[in-house]
Simulated assay, not measured.
Amino acid sequence: MNVLIIKGSPHEKGTTSLLAKKFEEGARAAGHVVQEIDAAHMDIKSCLGCNYCRKNNGICVHNDDMADAYPMLSDADAIVFVTPLYYFGFTSQIKKVIDRFYAMNSELRAEAKMAYLLAAGADREDWAMEGISATFDVMCRYLRWENAGSVLALGCGSREEIKESKYLSQAEVLGRSV
């Protein structure tokens, strides 16, 4: 199975990089092929909603790094969204990738895929992940993808906090379950 991890943190050595690494270790241990998109460190422009892609066979008006990401999205059987919690949702870096799904909307909605969410935030309140969870659920429903699981790391605003938590082992177990 082909697994695509889409990372959306501007911090290369942040908490979510550890979650992604553990998920990847689990998925590779289970025999899966893993690829990665580091959305925060790629040249990806925002969707303009201009419909150029609809009139030009899925080719976006922007000539940027999403051109490399589209084939990976097509080939993936499972897609893992990895993001720190920014104001109770995805980072803008990962959101740009999601918005650019628009260029291949029909294809993505026609393919059965599994989707996973790995998120970390410093907030400790139980409700802090409700916004991102709801957005993820609705996105999966719209795309007709299976919401295959998530690790929502509360109280993990630093690498030390996440290293001392249960969340890294949960991410590895989730990766093995793909």
Rank of each mutant, 00 (worst) to 15 (best):
V61S: 10
S92Y: 13
M114W: 12
N51G: 00
M114G: 06
E130R: 12
R54D: 13
Y86C: 05
C47P: 07
W127C: 03
T91L: 12
F90Q: 05
E107R: 09
L118C: 06
R54V: 06
A112S: 10
A115S: 05
V80A: 02
Y87I: 12
D64T: 04
G49L: 05
Y70K: 13
N56C: 11
R100N: 13
K113E: 02
A103Y: 01
N63A: 10
F81L: 15
A103N: 12
G121M: 02
V80F: 01
P84L: 03
K113Q: 06
Y87R: 07
E125A: 14
S92H: 14
A115G: 02
Y52P: 01
A120M: 01
K45N: 14
A128R: 04
A119F: 00
L118T: 01
Y116S: 02
A128D: 03
I94F: 09
L85M: 07
D68R: 13
R109Y: 00
C50T: 10
Y102A: 12
D43H: 12
T91Y: 06
F101I: 04
M114A: 10
I132W: 06
S92V: 07
Y87A: 07
P71S: 14
W127R: 11
A120I: 02
C60P: 04
A122H: 04
N56H: 15
K113A: 01
V80Y: 00
R124K: 14
F90S: 05
P71H: 11
F101C: 04
K96H: 11
I132T: 07
L108F: 12
Y102T: 08
S46D: 09
K96T: 15
G131A: 12
D99C: 07
D75T: 09
L108T: 02
R124G: 14
Y86G: 01
A103K: 00
M114C: 00
A112K: 09
G131W: 07
E130N: 14
N105A: 05
P84V: 03
Y52W: 13
D123A: 14
M129Q: 10
L117D: 01
A119G: 02
R100Y: 08
Y102E: 13
D99M: 06
A122E: 10
G131H: 08
I79W: 09
G121N: 02
S74R: 15
L85T: 02
R124E: 12
I94D: 04
A69F: 04
W127M: 05
L48N: 10
A103E: 03
D64P: 06
K95M: 13
Q93W: 03
T91H: 08
L117G: 04
K96L: 15
K95V: 03
R54F: 08
D126C: 01
S106A: 10
D99T: 05
V61I: 15
Y70M: 14
D43F: 04
L117Y: 05
V82P: 02
M104L: 09
G131K: 07
E107M: 11
T91A: 10
R124A: 03
M104Y: 03
V80D: 00
N51T: 08
A128C: 15
C47V: 12
D65F: 03
L73F: 13
E130V: 09
A78P: 01
R100F: 13
Y102W: 11
C50F: 09
L73I: 14
L85K: 04
G121K: 01
K96Q: 13
M66Q: 03
D99H: 10
A69M: 05
R54E: 11
S92R: 10
A119S: 14
Y87L: 11
M129C: 13
E130Y: 13
K95C: 01
